[in-house]
Nucleic acid binder design. Structure first.
Lengths: 219, 219
DNA sequence: ACAAAAGTGTTAAACATACACCCATGT
DNA sequence: ACATGGGTGTATGTTTAACACTTTTGT
């Protein structure tokens, strides 16, 4: 390697991805158990070193697929943490991402990974509690101002599912009529068929209109 | 250095800081002329390599003070860019920051740094145009939802200065009465004395109340 | 008295909130 | 017929948007 780049001692760079999903009507985060020192046997956010010719986002996607088998999820960069003492092994800067997946599609690989309710997190390695706090804040923020919520739902969903999701994330009840009015007024949903074979009034199914990306300022 | 960290070839890490200020009733960005290859003589966002025992934010502050002589400014992390090919010399990941300074206090050091109007940017080195676009988007966003605007103003300011600032950043006129009502209703300003020795009706001076940090959801 | 910028109030429209009952289905 | 969750409308308060003239000072 040439001149200026080799003049400085280089830090290591990792990418860690906070993976959110909804399971059992609860907001969950995927954590993996560390198999080696430091923080052996503590839980940690899945992540790994960035390969020298791999983009940051590719590193995040790679880890995500390795752990969950899922591709094509909502993925966004969160923040980079680089305090010199955050890893006892040496200087490690981590670029963090957060992912939203619909856990129906997930098959966890190996038994080192586990879903934790956001309200019952274990002690975690490194500064990963800071990262989790930050990710949760960002998640709420995104729910308020964008359409990312729908990445946590199946393709077709009922209005009640949407409302349940918002109530889980904000840990707060919303008025049913007002909630529906609000969501429908955004004009981001398409009516699908009506659900069948349920022993109560069959709900309307909706899907997110194609080409609705992230769009700020809703709700 | 020990085990796992040295198993991987490490990327270089830089910190680049997009420095915004208002001069001549215009939104400006500070750029520096590169003195060496690659992109010799092209303009670039001020930045440098992260020292092995320096936090990311310290690296940003250091560069900021080196170039402008200013400390204690509004500084926030923007985004990390890490595409493998962004620097022709090798793998360089950059963590970007953006800073808002009141340029009254600034003495540019050396003649390699220059303020550019955001509307008349030169060609820039590396992927710095992407970074500038991103920074400008974030700036507007922050103006809409937080109180950062006041970091670009002197301690005491008139309502007209605040409005001018918003009009510069959004490149859009606002109604004077509604604008004042809005800002005053936020309850974030304190009345100071009235300006003197002006040949027109003397304006009220305001200052930002102490302890008003960033506070989301204004305007 | 004039030039320059500061300051001020009202009305209409849009949006948000609060609130309770009937509906469609399977068993 | 009953249990289950789905679906709907109206009235009130709050927020935003549109709009033009008078005030204070120095020269």
């Amino acid at each position: 390697m040439d001149n200026e780049l080799s003049k400085y001692e280089k830090p290591s760079v990792t990418v860690d991805t906070v993976i959110f999903s909804i399971k059992e009507n609860d907001l969950k985060v995927l954590l993996v158990k560390r198999s080696s020192s430091p923080f052996k046997d503590k839980w940690a956010i899945p992540g790994g070193f960035v390969k020298i010719d791999q983009s940051l986002e590719d590193a995040a996607k790679f880890k995500l697929e390795e752990k969950t088998g899922v591709k094509d999820v909502y993925l966004e960069q969160l923040y980079s943490f680089g305090s010199p003492k955050r890893d006892p092994r040496g200087r490690v800067i981590t670029v963090t991402y957060f992912a939203l997946i619909n856990s129906d599609n997930v098959k966890l690989k190996g038994d080192d990974a586990k879903w934790f309710s956001i309200t019952e997190l274990p002690q975690v390695a490194f500064d990963h509690n800071t990262i989790l706090d930050y990710a949760l804040k960002r998640l709420k923020w995104k729910f308020e101002y964008t359409v990312v919520a729908f990445s946590l739902l199946p393709k077709k969903f009922t209005m009640t599912q949407v409302q349940d999701l918002y109530e889980i994330v904000f840990n707060q009840k919303f008025d049913k009529r007002n909630f529906r009015k609000k969501i429908l007024s955004l004009n981001i949903l398409e009516e699908q068929e009506v659900m069948r074979n349920v022993s109560f009034r069959p709900p309307q199914l909706y899907s997110l209109k194609a080409n609705i990306g992230e769009i700020v300022n809703i709700l």
